[in-house]
């Protein structure tokens, strides 16, 4: 029997996770996205004279975020849960596959799906911008799409943590809360400081530092006015997302390692 290394195990699991997403028609959302974008490019431009490119950028990136988050939450929570429920893990863990490698493989495979999804959407927005003559907006679209992808990797990891000990419905709800609070955590912290309540400041500081700060990844409104973020910001966001992903995956693995598959 050839020596099996952990990277090829992770690759095999990730490859299958990507195939699963494709065969389960996760990417069908792209059709709706393309239709939405086409409609926006053709019809909304007429209603917002001279603002076509801005509308296409704003709507396209917002849709990329909403579609992506929706998929990240709902597919993310069932990523491992489905394997347990359908008992496919029985055959997997009887093979030389550690639970951590399995979790990492499933996660990475799904992230590739999200990356592909985001790439196609960014290409769609770019084409729509070319159609409406908004070429100067394109430079802002791609960094914004990249940041949306990073945000989705964190949301998926959050979903994975919740689903490693809870039901998919509850996990989806909790992940959604993290998404919403993560977008407003800095505003909530500012609000608490303005209120002057010591307890509120402590509480919202804990939330601010504990939950991911998604406002870091939110540059859609900048992209819609033709701005693009500096490279340093992209670098910091990348490091922030990777660090968060690693912490969350470690947590999910620690919980998953102790599970009995009855």
């Amino acid at each position: 029997m050839p020596e099996q290394n952990f990277l090829s195990t992770i690759y095999a699991v990730a490859r299958n996770a990507f195939r699963e997403a494709v065969r389960d028609r996760v990417l069908y959302n792209l059709i709706v996205f393309v239709l939405l974008l086409t409609a926006a490019a053709i019809f909304l431009g007429e209603l917002t004279a001279g603002q076509e490119a801005r509308v296409v950028t704003d709507l396209g990136l917002s849709a990329t975020l909403i579609f992506g988050v929706f998929i990240a939450i709902f597919v993310g929570v069932s990523l491992v849960w489905k394997e347990i429920e359908k008992r496919t893990v029985y055959s997997i863990f009887a093979k030389p596959v550690s639970r951590s490698n399995f979790i990492i493989g499933k996660y990475l495979g799904f992230c590739v799906t999200l990356l592909f999804n985001t790439l196609v959407m960014a290409v769609g927005i770019t084409l729509a911008l070319l159609y409406v003559g908004g070429t100067k907006f394109i430079a802002g679209v791609w960094p914004a799409a990249y940041l949306i992808f990073l945000e989705m990797t964190i949301i998926t990891a959050v979903a994975l943590v919740f689903s490693s000990f809870s039901t998919p419905a509850l996990s989806a709800l909790l992940t959604f809360f993290v998404f919403v609070i993560g977008h407003f955590s800095s505003s909530l912290r500012d609000l608490a400081q303005a209120m002057g309540s010591e307890a509120a400041v402590v509480f919202f500081n804990v939330i601010y530092y504990l939950l991911p700060n998604f406002s870091l990844f939110s540059v859609i409104s900048n992209a819609a006015i033709g701005q693009h973020p500096p490279a340093s910001m992209l670098g910091f966001a990348t490091l922030y997302a990777v660090a968060y992903d690693i912490i969350l995956l470690t947590l999910a693995t620690m919980i998953f390692r102790r599970r009995n598959f009855k």
Partner: peptide, 26 residues
């Protein structure tokens, strides 16, 4: 190991499943 009433990835073909599991053994 062959579990009782084997549960496999039903979106895969028999050839693909064997290929996937073969990969897990390197």
């Amino acid at each position: 190991y062959c579990p009782e009433s084997p549960y496999f990835y039903d979106y895969l073909t028999a050839n693909e499943l064997m290929d996937y599991f073969g990969r897990l053994f390197g």
